[in-house]
């Protein structure tokens, strides 16, 4: 047991791992050194996204956005400008006459947020401002589909932008249609599991973190709203790099997933623990680290809490369940998750 006294002079990452009841799994821990607690645990957090927004009950994206931006705010001494793609996050935060953002924020279009952010970065560069940093953010539709060209361009130019994709696996704002990030077998309004159809097809979809890695940009990471320490660490790490960076955050959507609002964090956790949502980091195109699964759970435990997968759990669809299990297995192998 290494259970030594905390020492405030030692940076967090060098502190001896110690056991403080919940360790670093809860948001805060009254026994941890203050500097090692999460941004979200502090009363002084930026609340970049503040109360009064109109996200659904239990919205994972609202949570992920505040987590990520507040972490970035701490990492940059509150020097963040954010650009936002069209989508839930934009609509529920800025309906005239109310904005829920407390940071400089701009929304232009659905498919251009990466380019708008590049423009902001270009402006800062022209002005010689090296302290203000730029974040682009959008949902998976705005990122993997309509915004993909601009995103790839931003990666290609290695513009000094952190792009954060809040991945809830579909076009939820427009009424739950399939995106290229919709997981196989998921029911959406455009991939109904009718007859023998499995919902979203098993042979489709793209995994943008891998595509981002193929651009060999300085930093790529995946995160999940259930593991705040991991998420904040990745955002803060991303801010230590210059150039294009990409973080994809898994954010459950009670509306689109057909899940209980109260279970958003739980589902986020289960997605990771069953292997369907791999958490990892990559630098310059190479995998550098992965977050290990703490307690592995069967994928069906995760699926059964979501109505979008209800058909998969029917006896006649065990082949679909097997195929999903295989995806989890493959992820675990590919990203060293256990």
């Amino acid at each position: 047991m290494s259970n030594q006294d905390s020492n405030t002079d030692i940076p967090c990452e060098q502190q001896t791992v110690k056991f403080y009841q919940t360790g670093t799994f809860t948001v805060g821990n009254r026994l941890l050194d203050e500097g090692c607690r999460t941004v979200q645990a502090t009363a002084e957090r930026a609340n970049s996204l503040d109360s009064g927004h109109r996200a659904c009950q239990g919205c994972g994206q609202a949570l992920g956005a505040r987590y990520a931006l507040d972490a970035a705010m701490r990492a940059t001494d509150n020097k963040i400008i954010a650009a936002n793609a069209t989508g839930c996050l934009e609509v529920f935060t800025t309906p005239y006459p109310e904005t829920a953002w407390s940071i400089p924020w701009v929304h232009s279009l659905f498919g251009n947020v990466a380019a708008v952010a590049s423009g902001i970065a270009a402006s800062l560069k022209a002005k010689g401002d090296t302290t203000t940093r730029v974040i682009a953010q959008g949902g998976d539709g705005g990122t993997t589909d309509i915004g993909f060209g601009c995103l790839s361009g931003m990666f290609d130019r290695n513009d000094d932008v952190l792009y954060i994709c809040y991945d809830n696996g579909g076009y939820m704002n427009t009424g739950v249609q399939r995106s290229s990030a919709t997981p196989p077998a998921a029911r959406t309004a455009t991939t109904m599991p009718v007859g023998d159809n499995p919902g979203s097809s098993f042979t489709t979809g793209k995994f943008l973190p891998a595509i981002a890695m193929a651009h060999e940009i300085p930093y790529v990471a995946t995160a999940s709203v259930h593991d705040l320490h991991d998420l904040e660490r990745k955002v803060e790490k991303a801010m230590t790099f210059r150039g294009a960076r990409y973080i994809q955050i898994n954010v459950p959507c009670p509306l689109g997933w057909g899940s209980q609002p109260a279970l958003t964090i739980k589902l986020s956790r289960m997605g990771v623990e069953c292997g369907l949502v791999p958490l990892f980091e990559a630098e310059n195109g190479k995998l550098t680290d992965s977050t290990k699964i703490r307690y592995r759970i069967p994928v069906e435990d995760y699926l059964k809490l979501q109505r979008r997968f209800a058909h998969v759990l029917k006896p006649q669809n065990t082949h679909q369940l097997d195929a999903i299990r295989q995806i989890a297995e493959d992820n675990i192998k590919r990203y060293n998750l256990v």
């Binding site: 948001v27 805060g28 645990a41 927004h53 996200a55 609202a62």
Partner: peptide
């Protein structure tokens, strides 16, 4: 025990 979970995970602050 003041783990800050509720404070941290509330999507509505």
């Amino acid at each position: 025990f003041e783990c800050d979970n509720c404070y941290g995970i509330c999507p509505d602050n």
